[in-house]
């Protein structure tokens, strides 16, 4: 009888440990999908679409990177939107405190051929996307691994973290 009790007790502890592990592992911070924003062609209005998350890739760092890559790619091709230049890539993303630092590269690191209108819409959508994630209030942009004042030939100031109130 005592043996059975001991087994039951240990099994109960094991179940509790498992439940605690699962809750710690996932932190229940993200659901099945996240919202990704884009700026409409008027340059002011934001809209969103949803992308699915993999069940085992829902930690804050992975989701921040995924959100960045999706925002940089922009909405599906039949959607008219202000888009990052074709060839722009997400190089890295990490979250420290309430600030996400994202490093972008590819064609974005080259001299721009479009104007301030596009820059504003692109980064507004990226900032809205990342700050929609739990715990992120600001986004520090890096280009090619370095903090820059603006994009090459650009206008928008990037060397300080951007927030939703930047617009």
């Amino acid at each position: 009888m005592r043996t059975l009790r001991a087994i039951a007790g240990v099994a109960l502890l094991a179940v509790i440990a498992f439940v605690l592990y699962r809750s710690f592992h996932h932190r229940a911070r993200f659901g099945d999908s996240i919202a990704v924003y884009y700026t409409k062609i008027d340059g002011r209005t934001l809209a969103e679409w949803n992308v699915s998350l993999s069940p085992d890739a829902r930690d804050a760092k992975s989701v921040a990177f995924y959100a960045t890559a999706q925002a940089v790619a922009g909405p599906p091709p039949d959607t008219t939107a202000v888009r990052f230049p074709s060839g722009t890539i997400a190089r890295s993303a990490h979250v420290s405190g309430s600030t996400a630092t994202v490093d972008l590269g590819g064609s974005l690191a080259h001299e721009r051929s479009d104007g301030s209108f596009a820059e504003s819409g692109e980064f507004k959508a990226l900032v809205w996307t990342l700050t929609a994630l739990p715990g992120i209030d600001a986004v520090q942009i890096e280009i090619g691994g370095a903090r820059v004042p603006t994009l090459p030939g650009g206008h928008l100031e990037l060397d300080e973290p951007l927030t939703r109130s930047s617009w």
Partner: peptide
């Protein structure tokens, strides 16, 4: 283009027509 950072769990490929192809490691 391809977006990936070592240690990340997602790989996102953006097609020339702007469709995204998203892989999650282990899935």
């Amino acid at each position: 283009t391809l977006s990936y950072e070592p240690g990340q769990k997602y790989v996102v490929v953006t097609a020339g027509d702007r469709r995204t192809i998203s892989f999650a490691l282990g899935d």
